[in-house]
């Protein structure tokens, strides 16, 4: 994957496939600690396997497939920057999943964040039945959006998400 936002999109697709009705996405640019953190949580049907199997590229729960690359690719992208990926339980639901990823912000091998605002807008637009709780922290700038509070018009909700996330990320003092 050429952008971190594509890894995030992939994990969001996993959460949607787990029939989640609430999905929380948090992206934090911590320049002081030189870290980029991503946390994705859902209240879906949960992992059918142990966390270590979930990041095995040759393991998948999808019928007709022999590989499950999403989590393993994100883990590799994190580890090559001195970070990592952990899978745990989310408080959003009884068997919800929480995936936390940490990357070295200024590490030379870190992939660019890419078009996170456009990515989240696309996801919000095509899944209006899901309540997305989005938080982006970048220095002193912070944006928090809960799509269920933005009204029934999903297209305008997507536009609002794109604008707010874009504005928060615009505060970064380092290249993202």
């Amino acid at each position: 994957m050429r952008e971190l936002s594509l890894h995030i999109l992939d994990l969001l697709e996993n959460a949607q496939r787990a029939r989640a009705s609430v999905i929380a996405v948090t992206v934090e640019i911590d320049e002081a600690a030189d870290r980029l953190r991503v946390v994705i949580e859902d209240n879906g049907t949960g992992l059918k396997v142990a966390p270590e199997d979930a990041t095995n590229p040759f393991y998948t729960t999808k019928a007709g497939k022999r590989t499950g690359l999403g989590l393993s690719l994100f883990r590799a992208a994190a580890e090559q920057t001195g970070g990592g990926l952990t899978i745990g339980k989310s408080g959003l639901g009884p068997v919800g999943v929480r995936v936390a990823v940490e990357l070295g912000l200024s590490h030379v091998d870190r992939s660019p964040l890419g078009d996170l605002a456009g990515t989240l807008a696309g996801v919000v637009c095509t899944n209006p039945e899901i309540d997305y709780v989005i938080a982006v922290r970048c220095g002193m700038q912070e944006c928090r959006v809960r799509t269920s509070e933005l009204g029934a018009d999903a297209f305008r909700t997507a536009q609002a998400v794109q604008e707010l996330v874009g504005r928060a990320l615009g505060a970064a003092a380092v290249p993202l």
Partner: peptide, 26 residues
């Protein structure tokens, strides 16, 4: 508002589904 909502409600004449698996995203 109706125009915007129409784009996503599942009751319209045409449905366009984009495939967003890992392979598609990559």
């Amino acid at each position: 508002a109706r125009k915007a909502i129409d784009l996503r409600s599942g009751t319209k004449d045409l449905r366009i589904t984009v495939h967003m698996g890992t392979c598609g995203i990559a």
